[in-house]
């Protein structure tokens, strides 16, 4: 299911009432010209998955929080914001979850140089 990022809260609320009570994963994909955020939901009652995709601009991406509906979103959203530089609206900025450095660059963006440029490339 592809949605507009503004419609996230509405969509999640609707899906939760439909029985998708379990949030499995929030992740993102850097498509270079835009970011794609992926919500993988699951229904423990009906045993089915639903993938919610939404697109965000690469510059200053912002998205609402899913914390209202799923507490599981907590660490996933923190991971998302530090790995992709996505700002989560409605959540206070906390210390970084996984990184122990300045976090100036989002490491899972494609623009991030993964190895020392002086190393021989594979």
């Amino acid at each position: 299911m592809e949605i507009q990022s503004e419609a996230l809260a509405r969509t999640l609320e609707g899906l939760k009432t439909k029985g998708f009570d379990y949030l499995k994963k929030i992740t993102a994909v850097d498509r270079v010209d835009h970011l794609e955020v992926v919500y993988i939901l699951y229904s423990t009652i009906n045993n089915e998955h639903e993938i919610v995709l939404t697109q965000l601009p690469s510059e200053n991406p912002e998205i609402g929080t899913a914390m209202k509906f799923y507490k599981a979103a907590d660490w996933y959203e923190r991971e998302l914001s530090e790995m992709f530089g996505i700002k989560i609206k409605g959540r206070k900025a906390k210390r970084l979850l996984l990184e122990k450095w300045n976090g100036a660059e989002a490491p899972l963006r494609k623009s991030f140089e993964w190895a020392n440029p002086n190393y021989k490339k594979l």
Partner: peptide
């Protein structure tokens, strides 16, 4: 507080 063993496996795998 986690992340002491974070080594960016996902990023490494994207390049293998």
């Amino acid at each position: 507080h986690i992340g002491f063993l974070h080594r960016g496996v996902e990023k490494l795998m994207e390049n293998r």
